[in-house]
Amino acid sequence: MRTARPEDLPAIGAVQAQVWRDAFGELVEPQTLAEFTPAAFEAAWRESLQTPPSPVHRLLVATELDEVVGFVALGPTDRPTGGEILSGGVHPDRRGRGHGSRLLNAAIDTLAANDVHHVRVRIVESDTPLVRFLAVAGFAATGGYADRVVTSTGGTVREIELHTDSSASAEQEDHDHNHHH
């Protein structure tokens, strides 16, 4: 688990393309699916890595024998102690090996180090394995949702908002860790 480097970007793009094809393959039209290419995702990440929108924005990767097998992107929300998991995933062929849990823990720890304890994530409601994974990790539905148009004919997919608050567990730790970056 580490911060992404520029040389990781092609691999991150490849993982994200596979994750999105897996997650959205039955929800979007073929021409949309065709846009989920490693190169397209890589280009977007390259821009955000070169000019991070904020100090809280981070891109972390999970590796297996030096190969990038998963990623998670973090950013701030509009509340002072709020952060968001913007995107993330583990390559479908590399799931079930703990990478997702390690990425999620690293994301929450990284945000906590920046005094961000309230973490939200928006995911497709129909992705039951992901909903279950996040619930086990301590995320609860906020009741917030958005219906996103994903097809040219107006077909939508519902995204639900989940959140967790790490400040309760953080308060039990030594208060010497309250340093600012």
Rank of each mutant, 00 (worst) to 15 (best):
R5D: 02
P10L: 00
A11S: 14
G13H: 08
A14W: 08
Q16A: 02
A17W: 08
A17Q: 07
R21H: 15
R21S: 15
L27Q: 08
V28W: 06
V28C: 06
Q31T: 11
E35N: 14
A39C: 11
A39E: 15
A40H: 14
A43G: 11
A44P: 08
W45F: 15
E47N: 05
T51K: 13
T51W: 05
L60P: 04
L65G: 03
V68G: 01
V68A: 02
V69D: 01
G70W: 02
G70S: 01
G75I: 05
T81A: 12
T81I: 15
G82R: 07
G83Y: 04
I85W: 01
G88K: 06
G88S: 06
V90R: 02
D93N: 15
G96S: 09
L104S: 01
A106R: 11
A107N: 05
I108S: 00
D109C: 10
V116A: 00
R120G: 08
V121Q: 02
V121K: 02
I123T: 13
I123M: 08
V124W: 07
D127F: 11
D127I: 09
L130Y: 02
V131C: 10
F133D: 00
V136L: 13
V136Q: 11
T142D: 04
A146E: 12
D147P: 10
V149R: 08
S152K: 11
T153I: 12
G154E: 04
G155T: 11
T156E: 09
R158P: 09
H163C: 07
A170W: 14
D174T: 12
